[in-house]
């Protein structure tokens, strides 16, 4: 069974966000980039499947991105971190991820020829939260798509999954190959052990040129969010003041 895990290279949540003078680009100086936290769920699930059947499961980790200037902004080192979970090989498509359409086409062009049974994604990346890429890849390759998956079990050429929906969960059956986007629950996050980290250093990491795709959406600029309104401290002995404030805003 061949599994493809697609990961995003995103600024750490705790990092300070700044932009270039014209606001079009993230200023990557001094920013620590991490594997998108939702992608960690699929990496962990792929590692579980690999552990159960080491010779029968092959896992490829893919990222569309360019290495930054600093050591904290290196796509290759994030790919190696993913490999350290016991996965087999990595692919970096050497291009800046311009928009979801561009990235989805890069992944689809690569995956088309590889015969993957499972294409794994996080449900969204924490930079733009668009949830665009997995569904676009499924549509480009005409594969079944299960979004917000919280579990997947495989039996032969069929998978049983659960998917999060408003107010509950849905059970889904699908043939392989399929595209999945993961929600928390798919697997427990894993931390690589020393042996995994050592082995990852020598695992194959292929850098491929991008295919030609014209992006459809461009960033005009970024702005900082509007400043919060004034903070009001409420005396716990005058709790009615809070009720009145909320009522004045039509919230009660």
């Amino acid at each position: 069974m061949k599994i493809l895990c697609c990961i995003s290279h995103v600024p750490d949540t705790t990092t300070r966000i700044q932009f270039s003078a014209d606001g079009t680009q993230l200023d990557r100086t001094g920013v620590t980039f991490i594997v998108n936290p939702y992608d960690d769920f699929v990496l962990a699930r792929a590692a579980e499947l690999k552990e159960k059947n080491p010779s029968g499961v092959h896992v490829t980790v893919l990222c569309v991105g360019k290495n930054g200037a600093s050591s904290t902004d290196n796509v290759d080192s994030n790919l190696r971190k993913a490999l350290a979970l016991g996965l087999d090989e990595a692919v970096r498509i050497d291009a800046l991820p311009v928009d979801g359409y561009f990235v989805a086409n890069q992944i689809a062009a690569y995956a088309e020829k590889q015969g993957f049974d499972l294409l794994f994604f996080g449900k969204e990346s924490i930079d733009y939260n668009g949830s665009q890429v997995p569904g676009m890849v499924a549509a480009l390759l005409n594969l079944p798509y299960i979004s917000y998956a919280t579990s997947i079990e495989i039996a032969g050429q069929k998978a049983v999954l659960t998917r999060e929906i408003t107010g509950g969960k849905e059970r889904i059956e699908s043939p392989l190959p399929l595209v999945l986007s993961a929600q928390k629950g798919l697997a427990e996050w894993r931390i690589p052990n020393v042996r995994g980290i050592m082995q990852a250093k020598t695992k194959p990491l292929h850098v491929l040129p991008p295919v030609e795709v014209t992006p459809r959406v461009q960033t005009l600029r970024h702005e900082l969010p509007p400043a919060k309104g004034p903070f009001k401290k409420i005396d716990p002995d005058k709790i009615e003041e809070l009720v009145q404030e909320l009522a004045n805003k039509g919230l009660i």
Partner: peptide, 13 residues
């Protein structure tokens, strides 16, 4: 909204 509520992005197509 972008970057975990730390920025607003204007997009164009």
């Amino acid at each position: 909204i972008a970057y975990s509520n730390k920025a607003i992005e204007w997009v164009y197509t």
